[in-house]
Design a protein around this nucleic acid. Structure first.
Length: 476
RNA sequence: GGCGCUAUCGUCUAGCGGUUAGGACAGGGCCCUCUCAAGGCUCAAACCCGGGUUCGAUUCCCGGUAGCGCUACCA
């Protein structure tokens, strides 16, 4: 049974890179009928915040993927400490009494351990500890000549590092709180995690982790590191520098469909190799494989003017178009309410959905695309009422003729309206387009809108006639 | 600085010794058309540099360069 874990630390909001890591883990597990563990890595007491924790859950829940088990590392500190001391008992870790502020700076490279500490006898070490002297517990990295640690990575292949390049890293802080490395490995072993998929920034840490697993007498999980998501300027994503676009909830608020967003994120750093791009969650689950994961970092493309990657927008539009009317209506509802549309009942929305389905890329665009279905256009440029190759007189004629024809129309459905209005334009001796533009602007308040007849039908005879009147008024 | 990883159109990518270097998004043009979309067709756009290996390198090896990551009692 495959067991994966996603282990965010609540020291910042959930960003899209984290979301992608979660998604890849989820897909990897689900593809093989495995389980997904969500583990909150909150051992850094100083930097944890409730807001971050909330943002993580908010973001993950929105993805509509779910998980099977939930843990918090802070509930499991005893387990980590126990694991650390078991390593100490095996002689594979030692106490380092060097005060934190006396730690060598280490920028010229090459710091491996503090002289004197590694060689302390057990008696001496115990004596100083008993006397209450603070210490950190460090892993005793093997120092034999030519020794190396090997990682067989599911993405990067065989990667090795000489132990001569690995410092004696800390397992326990002087406060007694386990470090990330210790807590993470102890938990992975205890939770029987079989596969670790995580960001490539951890590749270099993995050598330490292999050492810890070995010292713990635990079988190391299979490792697979993911290329990183970068900002267009090539630097890492940062809310401070790049703004809210790096936060998952921004995508939710703008009106991305969760699984369209999942689809998009999957395409950054992974490919099914057959040129497929638009995939449902089911298809992704079926197609996902470590083989398809790229090794180079991927840039997510956004600018100040266009905060979302154009491909994300396109994919979202694709997913919107393939939703059935009920589902899309249901998804649209909260955004219509958010826009403050009066009377945005499901029934009313349902008549509008098909008219905007292929015209929006984001659910939130319902606000700007469908406004006139709910309220008469407040103001528009009167010039826009004037058709191409026409003048104000033609516009007025068209509007008057339309009023007359629409008032007399035997029915107010789009088929009837089409006949009636086309006949009217013939009678007026103008082109259909010249007839329709004034009507469209009068009713919708702009030149670009959904098809006219369906739109008129949805708006209704009474409102249409009233809007034609006020347009005529504005024209004269 | 040391160590690790990476390098194909603007962006995401396919390619796993011989290809007109393929697809997608974005961009240009055309068609369709009541506007806008959607759709169809089409154009432009890439193998980081230098050495090897080979009959032949985008592909394999080495070096350079560049980018990213790690180098904490952060994760």
């Amino acid at each position: 049974m495959i067991r994966v874990r996603f282990a965010p630390s609540p020291t910042g909001y959930l960003h899209i890179g984290g979301a992608r890591t979660f998604i890849f883990n989820w897909l990897h597990a689900r593809r093989q009928g495995g389980q997904v563990v969500l583990r909150i890595d909150d051992t850094d007491v100083e930097r944890n915040t409730q807001a971050s924790l909330d943002s993580i859950f908010e973001g993950l829940e929105w993805l509509e993927l779910g998980w099977d088990e939930l843990y918090r590392q802070s509930d499991r500190l005893d387990l980590h400490r126990q694991a650390a001391w078991s390593i100490f008992e095996k002689g594979l870790a030692y106490r380092d009494f060097t005060p934190a502020d006396a730690q060598p700076e280490n920028q010229t490279g090459g710091w491996l351990f503090n002289p004197g500490m590694r060689e302390l006898t057990r008696e001496e070490s115990d004596r100083r500890a008993d006397a209450g002297e603070p210490f950190v517990l460090r892993f005793r990295v093997p120092r034999g000549a030519g020794e190396e640690v090997v990682v067989d990575d599911g993405v990067y292949g065989r990667v090795t590092k000489s132990t001569g390049d690995l410092e004696d890293f800390a397992l326990l802080r002087s406060s007694g709180v386990p470090t990330y490395h210790m807590a993470s490995c102890a938990d992975d072993a205890d939770l029987r995690i079989t596969d670790i998929l995580r960001g490539q920034e951890h590749l270099a840490n993995t050598f330490k982790h292999m050492l810890i697993f070995e010292a713990l007498g635990a079988q190391a999980p299979r490792m697979a590191h993911l290329p990183l998501l970068m900002a267009p300027d090539g630097t890492k994503l940062s809310k401070r520098i790049h703004g809210p676009v790096v936060s998952v909830t921004t995508y939710r608020d703008a009106g991305f469909l969760p699984h369209a967003f999942v689809n998009f994120l999957c395409l950054l750093g992974w490919s099914p190799k057959n040129d497929r791009e638009k995939m449902s969650l089911g298809e992704l689950t079926e197609l996902f494989s470590l083989d398809g994961i790229n090794r180079a970092n991927a840039i997510i493309n956004f600018t100040e003017e266009e905060p979302f990657d154009p491909k994300a927008l396109w994919l979202n539009a694709e997913h919107i178009r393939s939703l059935d009317l009920d589902e899309l209506t249901r998804r649209l509802q909260p955004y219509a309410e958010q826009a403050g549309f009066e009377g945005a009942t499901e029934q009313k929305l349902r008549t509008i959905t098909p008219l905007i389905q292929e015209r929006i890329r984001l659910l939130g665009e319902v606000a700007s695309v469908a406004d006139f279905f709910f309220v008469a256009p407040q103001s528009y440029d009167v010039e826009e009422l004037i058709p191409k190759k026409g003048d104000a007189a033609m516009a007025a004629d068209a509007l008057r003729k339309a009023k007359e024809a629409l008032a007399a129309a035997p029915a107010f459905d789009h088929a009837t309206l089409e006949t009636v209005l086309r006949d009217a334009s013939d009678a007026l001796g103008v082109k259909a387009g010249q007839m329709f533009q004034p009507i469209r602007v009068a009713v919708c308040g702009r030149k670009n809108a959904p098809p006219l007849f369906e739109t008129l039908e949805a708006v209704g005879r009474e409102d249409v006639l009233a809007r034609l009147d006020s347009a005529l008024g504005a024209l004269l």
